[in-house]
Amino acid sequence: MSSSVEAITVLSSDGDEFKITVSAAKLSKPLNWMLEDVCFSDDCDEVPTIEVNSKTLVKVIEYCEKHAPRANSGASDSDAEELKKWDIEFMKMDVKDILFHILMAANYLHMEGLYDLACQTAADLMKGMTVSQIRKIFHIKNDFSSEEQEQLRRQHPGCSFD
């Protein structure tokens, strides 16, 4: 890898081009490996594809660019506090529409920080949901027979299937 390169270009699964700085790309292990393997100079015409759709990739790159300076240099407590607030704002998104895609992308790109944040956000959102709301966002069908429901109700009085 040439040290003069500061940003690389990647393709989303929809075929859109995105720029990501080298320091931000380092937050992802697979991207980091790619940086080491592939020649990212100006005359290199190979553009790697990331199997993440454009809408999600925008968010993932936004997260990387924000977190890269701290991950690379370490930062003071006040920075950490500021970053925490930013994370909370950043995670204000629709569960089904985008959060689950971020989860998949963070898992696929081996981004521990983002994966952890997204899992916690999903868990926090689920706390207040009913069973039927959970089924809806996770695309799950109620596969209990009425006998099984009856049995569970006996074991856990007050449990609800709705």
Partner: peptide
């Protein structure tokens, strides 16, 4: 979008026991 079990597990382990006992009824 269906989440793989690995991700579902990682989300669910963050919930309280009270929530989890409730969510046993999901499927």
């Amino acid at each position: 979008l269906f989440l793989p079990q690995e991700i579902t597990t990682n989300i669910l382990k963050r919930l309280s026991v009270r929530c989890l006992l409730r969510f046993q009824c999901v499927c």
